[in-house]
Simulated scan of single mutants.
Amino acid sequence: MMRTVMTVAMLGFAVAANAQSTEVAFGTGQQDTSLPVEVSADTLSVSQNDGSALFTGNVVIGQGEMRLSAPRVLVFYTEGQSGVERLEATGGVTLVNGDQAAEADTAEYEVNRGTIRMLGNVLLTQGANTLVSDSMDVDLENGTALMNGRVRTVFQSGDN
Rank of each mutant, 00 (worst) to 15 (best):
F76M: 11
T56K: 07
R3H: 10
A101F: 02
G114P: 08
M147N: 05
A16D: 11
V24C: 01
V37R: 09
S47H: 04
L140W: 02
D137V: 13
V84K: 05
G57D: 09
G27D: 06
V59E: 02
E23N: 08
N121F: 06
R117Q: 07
T94I: 04
Q48W: 06
G143M: 07
R117G: 02
T106P: 00
E103L: 13
L146I: 10
Y77G: 11
A16Y: 12
G92M: 04
R150D: 04
D50L: 04
I116V: 15
N112G: 14
Q81G: 04
G57V: 09
T144M: 02
M118T: 02
L119D: 15
L54H: 09
D50T: 08
N58D: 10
Y77Q: 14
S21I: 03
N97S: 14
T56R: 08
R86A: 08
R150H: 06
L140K: 02
Q126S: 14
V24Q: 01
T130W: 07
L35V: 09
L11E: 14
Q20C: 02
Y109L: 13
G98T: 10
D137G: 04
L87P: 02
A145Y: 01
T43A: 12
G158N: 15
D105N: 13
L54W: 07
T125S: 11
I116W: 02
A19T: 12
V59T: 05
V154N: 03
A70T: 12
Q31F: 08
F76D: 12
A9I: 15
N18I: 10
T7P: 00
N18P: 11
V111E: 06
V24N: 00
S47Y: 04
Q31E: 13
G127H: 08
N97L: 07
Y77I: 05
V122K: 03
G149R: 03
S21R: 11
R150V: 04
R86Q: 14
N148G: 09
Q126E: 13
N160F: 12
T90C: 00
Q48P: 06
G92K: 05
G98I: 10
E141A: 11
S34M: 07
A107C: 04
E79L: 11
E103V: 12
A17D: 15
G158D: 15
V59C: 02
L54K: 11
N142K: 14
F76P: 00
A101N: 03
V8K: 13
N49A: 15
L140A: 05
V151C: 03
G51V: 05
Q20M: 06
E38T: 14
L140D: 03
N18C: 12
V46I: 15
